[in-house]
Every structure is written in C-alpha cells, then in structure tokens.
Design a protein around this nucleic acid. Structure first.
Lengths: 402, 402
DNA sequence: ACAATTAAACTCGCTACGCGAGCATAATGC
DNA sequence: GCATTATGCTCGCGTAGCGAGTTTAATTGT
C-alpha cells in the first residue's frame, strides 16, 4: 500500500471535493478548538478575510457552525466565536462495559448533549443488542436527520467491526451490525475497542495532548492500549491492534487464556497479585486487583504484590518505548494506582528497561485525565473523523454520492 | 495532536495549493505506477478528459512528466504512457552500512539512474562524512537543479535526523547534517534507519505490496524493522521507532549492549547461535550467524542453534502480531534463511504465540523481495514523499514560498 | 480499399473557489 | 470627539475542473 492513493471508489467528484476543502478544514478546526474566533481560524487556515466570510456564511446556512459575538478583548472590530451549530450534526455513542453500558449523544464540538446508562447481565449479548437498538431507535426519532453515525466502544477485541473476543464479558464472536438502523441503511456504524478509543480521546483532549506519538496503556483485567500517532490510532489491518498485554514479556511457563504463553497480561493485573500473595487464581481479577491495591497501604504482602506488578509494568512500558518511540505515555485503569503506590518500582523497571540512549530524556508517564468518559469521547472523535470527509459532508448537504 | 491540522507554517497559500492539487495527485500516481496510461490515470483520479489534458500539458512543460506513445492494445485512439521526465527532479541517496556505502541517484519513477559504492574503514565517521560530501558535491554539479533532496539510510538508530547509536559501526552520536550542501541550504536532508527504509520499499514495491499494515523484520546483528501502515512507516516521535529487537522477549538474566536486559536481539542472532553451540560470545555476530547457517545442513549443533533461533523469532513475531495486527509480515536478512532452514520451528513458535482468535488466518510470513537495494529505494521513496507536497512542487516551479 | 466502430484526446464555454484591494464597521485610547 | 486598530464585507479577477461537442487514431468488418 502506498500513501496518497487517489480515491477511485465512490464519493464526490474532484471539483466537488475541492470546493468543500476549505469548509472541511474549518469544521475540523472548530472541532479541535471550539470557540475559536473567525479571525484566528482564517489565519490558521491561511484564508483571506473574504474567503473566511464566504466559507462561514455557507457553513452557517448549512447549520454546521454557529457564530456567537464575543466580548471584545482589545482594540479593533470584535470578532465572532465559532461553535458547533445547535441543530448541527451529532453522533450516537454506545460504550459496552463489563456489567453496564453508557449511551451518549455528542456534537461536533465534543460536547455530550445527552447521556444515559444502564446495567446488563452480560450473559446474553443478543438481548443487549436488542435493548441498545431500542435506545438508538428512540434517539433517531428525537434527533432525526441530525444523527450522522453510530459509534460503539466495547470492552473486547474488535476485528473488521466484529467483536471477536471479550474475555471479561465472556462473549465470543458477537456481530454488532444489528445495531445498524434498518430505516437508515446508509448511516455509518463504527465499532472499536474501548481502550483504543479512550487512547484517542486522551491523545486529542487529555494527557496526551502535547505528544506527537502517544502510547496509551490501561490495566484492568490484563493490559490494553493503543499507539496514537498524530491523533490517529495505529490499530492495524483489522482493527485489533493495541493488544499489548499479549506480548510475551512474562514467564513462558504461564499459559494465558488467550491461547499463548508468557503474556504480559499475567504479570500486571489481579492474577499476578494473587500469585504474588500466594492466593489461588481469582475468579474476578478486577475486584482482586482493586482489593489488593486498597490494602497496599497497610498489608505488606499486598504492598509487595503491588510493587512487583508496578515493576513488571515499568519493564514492559520500557520495551514498548524502545520499539515504538512515543514521546508521551498515558496510564489508565489500575496503572494509575500502581504508578502512585509504587512509583519507584515502576520507574526503576522503566528506566532499566530502556535502551541507554533513551535514558537521558525518557518519555514521561502521565496519568489519564479524562476518566470514565474517555471511550465515549474517543468513539465520537472517530465518528466525526468519518463524517468530516467529502462523502460525509456531501451526505449532510444533500449532494448525492455517485 | 489531532489529525487534519491546517498548515499554519510556511508554504504556498491555499489557492496556490488548490491549483496544484490534481497535478500532485497525478505525480504521486505516476510514481506508484510508472507507465500508467493517461486515460487510466484520469479514471483513477476521477478527472475529466479535459482536465487530464490540461494537467498533463502543464506537467510536461514543467519537466515533471513525460508522455510516450504506447503500442495500441485494442480499438480506439491509442493513449500515452506517463513517465518521469528525463530532465525531471531526482534525489541523491546514500546508504551507510557496516563496512561500505552505496550512493545512488533515483528519479520520480523509482528508477536508479546512477549508482556507486565504496568501502570505509568505519573507525572515523567524520572522515566518511567528508568523503560523502565530496561525492554529493560532484552529483550536485552534474545534476544541478534537478537534485531535490539528499536522503540517507544508515545502519543505526536515528533520532531527529541524528545518528544516536550504531553498534555495528561502533559509532555514537554522529551528526550527519554536515552532508547538507552549503551552496543549497534549502535542499532537504533526510536521515533514516536502514531497516525502516527497507521496510518502506518492501511495503510499497516488494513483498508487502498487498498488505495494508505490514510488519517488516530483518535479522542481522539483532532484529530491526518497522511497521508500515498504509505506506507510511510508524517510526515514532523522534524517528527511532522499529527497534523491535529491544523488546524484552528473552531471558532477563542476559544483559544487552543497549543497556537493557532480556532483549529479543540476543535470542535470534549470531550471539544466540554461539550460546546454543557452546561457543564464547563472537566478536562478529554477523559472520558467526552466516557461518552457522551455512553449516546447518550437515552439522547437528549448528542445525539445533538455527532451529532454536527460528523458534525464538517465531514467538516474537507472534507477540508483535498480537500487539500490532499486521496483515503481512516480511522477513529480511538472516530471518530468510532461518525461515527456510527451520520452517517448522518458526511456524510452531509463531502459531503457538498467537492469540487463539488469530490462528484461523494468521498473517503470512513472506521473504523480502527487493534485497540489497531496499534501503536505497525506501530512502528515495521518503524523499519523493517530501518533494511531492505543495512546498516541494512550489520550489520546483519557481514559485516562492512565503 | 474503404466505411463503421471505438476509445481517447482536444476545444471551449460555464461555474465556483479563493485572492486581493478597497470600503465599512466597531471597538480602544487619548 | 477623533485617530487608531482590527476585523468583516463587497466585488472584480484568475484559475481549476466539468461537461458537451468535436477531432483523431486505432481496430474491425465488408
């Protein structure tokens, strides 16, 4: 595959696309910096003031951006602030987690305009899918044509939009295409791994904001994450990239439920803590890890288990830094308390695992800053990435795509 | 960092850029498919025949493309084949290896129009740099303004265009910016790791041609490589990505010269073979590996050493597939004979290290198909990537970049 | 040999984007 | 109140790309 391949597939023709080029750039900018002034936007996009007038006027009548007066800051004619239009495009987001789910409606600015949640038993994926369909149908009815995509984050491995493995959910090979709306067959349905999407959100809006290449790592049951390069997740050919927990950093004698041996997963989560404390393998490694971390302050065995996991985490992170060369590492899930409670062990494992030339200025380890909403915001981000293209805008403006 | 960031830096203004958009796309297409017919190109770029006429005419007068008549294949007016212009832009490429170097001049099509090579003692990087400067100066004099970039591939770790570590060359922190031409200070100088650039060439023109996300791995002294996603190398924040050999897949008791422990490097190359054969650590692991591989046919100890290295290679590849999700793996260097001589051991290590859901259709292991020229062609590829931009084209057409 | 057919290149008027220059407007500062 | 400053608006101009019609160079059939 080569970059710069011309789109020979369906989509608007060249001239059409060129005409909307500046408009697209402006929308992307507004999404990245909501409330940016029109004057600043014109400078950033290198548009003349005449063109800026023309483009914003066009986008206003299309209900894509809204212009609000802004309190004057200095001399000169005051400018206006650009925002998502109150009746502009929105995406519906679902985040399927271990025992519950979140639903949200997000606008172009990344604002959550509507949010809900619910619990699920987890034993019947088909039932959950039906339930989510009902909720999404209701959203479609209230929001109508404003809805431009459905984006799903799920706690499991996703390939080509299919959930192929979800160990914490005890699901295998669940087809989520039933979430598609039959009344709007063209409506894009995007499916992604929750850690991948959380990483996207952290890279664009969270602790990874200033990194060019950010490595996101989260420990729950095992290790998940993603490398986000210039805002784009490196999720491989099928979308299943980022399963860093199944790199063989650990003891080859230990078999992983994934089918391989010596997986890093087994060295950093509740299962590792149980081994270190001499307990049998826990049924619920997540709760076991939470419990061990809670006890670490007073209980020496728990503290030692936490320390050993932190060291294993640090060593693995160092290996990934050697291989992938990020300039920022963002930690989520249990990696945050591991980092807090055993900073020295983690830093030692990290430093000593780095190639010597990297030790002068190793990339910083930062705790995630978005929290529970991260997968939701990341899912909205990738959905708007897909919308803010020639084809997506063509659909909104009513132009047909041949 | 977010994608779609508008270029607020220097470069041609928007209107200028838009005007050359189709021309750029056509040049990129000609580079990817030299000799493509004008009619096919117009279809691929979705240009009307009128626009195609206009664009090609413009590019012809600018000495960027050349049109040659083509033997008619069927009915209808025969079309013309698009090629790099014989007086069009070229890049100078240098590949610095262990004991020798290659120099080449490559055109837009990827054809090597001039090639040379030389040996170097390796003990004095400054002397080599001076020598290369002389050669590059001569190239500049013969080719004049046709020269659009200098692109350097080097057998070592590169960060921000600086060579920070080259263990086989026994160099540390060499500044290659002296290769810059003082008479043409604007001439871009690009520096990259040789395995990274070989991976780019394999992904675009070699065995990885049909992969979307290709993992390139080469064994020489240690393991190098790169993940190439949609033609773009994922080389991290500073350009030092792809050092997969320094992932801790191996025995933590073994110290690696890089400063870390348990590096994969130590399990797959000549050093590993020496351990397995009970020999002391070789001074020249490359030659030791070559020798062991040569003996593997008859010598059981050598054969066993090769088999163990192949198994270690397979296990590591599986881990990388789990983490990065490529759809094609291209093997270079000693990985090719390891794969040939111990196919079963490699395949067993590979299969058993994969997550279960990947085993149904694991990405294929393919030998590299370009060979020695791969770093040179890859270096030319990235140089032309940089040239085929608004700014690069502006420089060629004589427009000034504000 | 000479049409008929076919695919591609060329010509030309049309539309719309973005530019730039000039003008209008709304704030600050003296 | 008036100069200053930053911004938005108007309008003529240049150019890309389209599309429809025309021309050209090959094959295919009689």
């Amino acid at each position: 595959m080569s970059p710069g391949a011309a789109s020979s597939g369906p989509g608007p023709r060249r001239g059409e696309a060129a005409r909307w080029h500046a408009a697209l750039d402006l929308l992307r900018l507004v999404r990245r910096q909501p409330g940016i002034s029109r004057a600043d936007a014109a400078r950033a996009l290198r548009l003349s003031s005449g063109s800026a007038t023309e483009v914003t006027a066009r986008l206003r009548t299309l209900r894509l951006v809204d212009e609000a007066p802004v309190a004057p800051t200095g001399r000169g004619r005051p400018t206006t602030a650009l925002h998502a239009h109150p009746h502009g495009p929105i995406v519906a987001v679902v985040n399927i987690r271990h025992e519950d789910f979140q639903v949200a409606v997000v606008d172009l600015e990344g604002d959550v305009v509507e949010a809900g949640r619910g619990r699920h038993s987890g034993d019947d994926p088909a039932r959950l899918v039906r339930r989510l369909r009902t909720i999404l149908d209701a959203l479609r009815r209230t929001h109508g044509d404003r809805l431009q995509a459905i984006s799903v984050a799920v706690a499991g491995t996703v390939r080509h939009g299919r959930l192929v493995q979800a160990s914490t959910l005890h699901w295998r090979d669940v087809d989520l295409s039933a979430l598609q709306d039959p009344d709007r067959p063209g409506l894009p349905l995007l499916v992604g791994n929750d850690a991948t999407l959380a990483g996207v959100a952290e890279a664009r809006r969270g602790s990874g904001r200033d990194s060019h290449t950010m490595l996101y790592l989260t420990v729950e049951v095992g290790v998940g994450g993603i490398l986000v390069d210039a805002g784009t997740p490196v999720s491989g050919a099928t979308g299943a990239g980022g399963e860093f927990g199944h790199l063989p950093f650990g003891d080859p004698a230990l078999a992983c439920p994934c089918g391989a041996r010596g997986c890093w997963d087994l060295d950093v989560d509740g299962r590792a803590m149980a081994r270190h404390r001499g307990d049998p393998a826990p049924h619920d490694p997540w709760s076991y890890a939470a419990d061990t971390i809670a006890r670490a302050a007073g209980d020496p065995a728990a503290e030692a288990a936490v320390t050993r996991c932190a060291a294993a985490l640090g060593r693995g992170v160092a290996g990934l830094v050697n291989a992938l060369d990020p300039d920022g590492i963002v930690l989520g899930g249990f990696a945050v308390p591991l980092h807090r409670l055993a900073a020295d062990a983690l830093a030692d494992g990290y430093r000593s695992g780095l190639m010597a030339f990297r030790r002068a200025s190793p990339p910083p380890l930062l705790p995630a800053s978005i929290g529970e909403q991260a997968p939701v915001l990341g899912a909205a981000d990738v959905a708007f990435d897909a919308f803010l293209t020639d084809a997506g805008l063509a659909a909104w403006t009513g132009r047909q795509t041949p």
